[in-house]
Design a protein around this nucleic acid. Sequence first.
DNA 1: GTCTATAGGCTGATAGAC
DNA 2: GTCTATCAGCCTATAGAC
Lengths: 240, 240
Amino acid sequence: MSSFSRVRPGRPRLVPDIGVGTPREQVLEAAARLFTSKGFAATSTREIAEAVGIRQASLYYHFAGKDEILAALLATTVRPTQVVVEEIVALVPPERVETALCLLALVDIDTLARVPHNVGVLYQLPDVVSATNLDYASFRQAHSELTEAYANLGSRVAERYGVSTSPPALGSMLIQQVEGVITLRTDGKAVDSDRATEIAAGCLRLCGCDRAEVDESIRRAKALHEQLTPRTTQSVMSPG
Amino acid sequence: MSSFSRVRPGRPRLVPDIGVGTPREQVLEAAARLFTSKGFAATSTREIAEAVGIRQASLYYHFAGKDEILAALLATTVRPTQVVVEEIVALVPPERVETALCLLALVDIDTLARVPHNVGVLYQLPDVVSATNLDYASFRQAHSELTEAYANLGSRVAERYGVSTSPPALGSMLIQQVEGVITLRTDGKAVDSDRATEIAAGCLRLCGCDRAEVDESIRRAKALHEQLTPRTTQSVMSPG
DNA sequence: GTCTATAGGCTGATAGAC
DNA sequence: GTCTATCAGCCTATAGAC
């Protein structure tokens, strides 16, 4: 909206606005970068303001407080929802659970790899979790539902291959594997399409799939995945 | 040392000392609990002091500053060193790489599960990483050496089963799987011996092992593991 | 919409009594 | 070895001018 005209209402900034997007978006961009790299509590509102090129007090025109900035960032959904899981399952013939699991993993990995500034880390920070002014509970529930989806699909696959790991344990192992994407980005490593495929294949092997089944499921899931996310550059992401 | 006599030099505390261990240990215990649950930056020295039952300023008799408390905690080694890796490899006949990998995983899982207050999380916190007054680099190197050990053992196993994942990718997947212990403890879930076994088995499946090989390697590795850590309660740990 | 100015609180740390 | 007392600095947030 702001890029339509450089002449905006209100007093001009000391430093002219050279950023992209609305001021609000600029704040969120800077906050995401700082929160993920230094942590929430360790980042001051002054630093955020300075990164944007405005004064500390000016933040409070756009957000009610530091917590609100964090809440807005967390609202940036970074994981597949229950609805998406159901779509994925519906896309795949019931006898091909392996493909469904693989597709879920690919979609999830892709989401985590693409989200700006590795915002996925925020959900893992203790000071974010314990800063319970916000409805962190709703995230927890969404996350545990996603874990259940992994547990459900994974254990149906495991059954076929005689793997006896309990569904909850298998679910947490699978989601842990997928969330390796967050770790990789934190460590400054890029997550490209090949890496995504390797992680998804790892998920299948975790459930006991043999090589032939892994290859076949990967092939089918990748086809479906490209069909789900058409025309965009595939899963290539800078580490930041 | 302090428990020999309750009468210690110096002015008595306002609140009588009912804690265990030396005052220094009490501070570390409280700091570990608070740092891991609230984060480093979000924890004040006043909170630590209050938890111990002393005044904020009294902390500075035992530690030069907040950073020093953190550094002392990080010095609590929580992962197998290069030397331990070599010992493990030496324990297992060369043709049983699967067993070596499994044993490494079990030892590592056990270490992470037993360390007080889930101190392993500290190494993942952005504010700890960016608080580089301390030699965080040495930890990074130790961690990357451990990842390499997983990569090395894992890819030797993978080779046998026709799994073509690159060693670095496999290494990061394996260590990610093991570090699921940290996540589990953060989520308040206990990590008992059965869970440890399931995770170790997952590591083997990640490398392509079939069921028979997984079972055999687990059996051998557990025997060696018990031999390494005799007479202690096996891997049972409270979540905190 | 951004500025200046400032309030009020909490922080990490030091000095010196006991 | 722990206390009291205190400091200077930074923090979030508000009020009101432009």
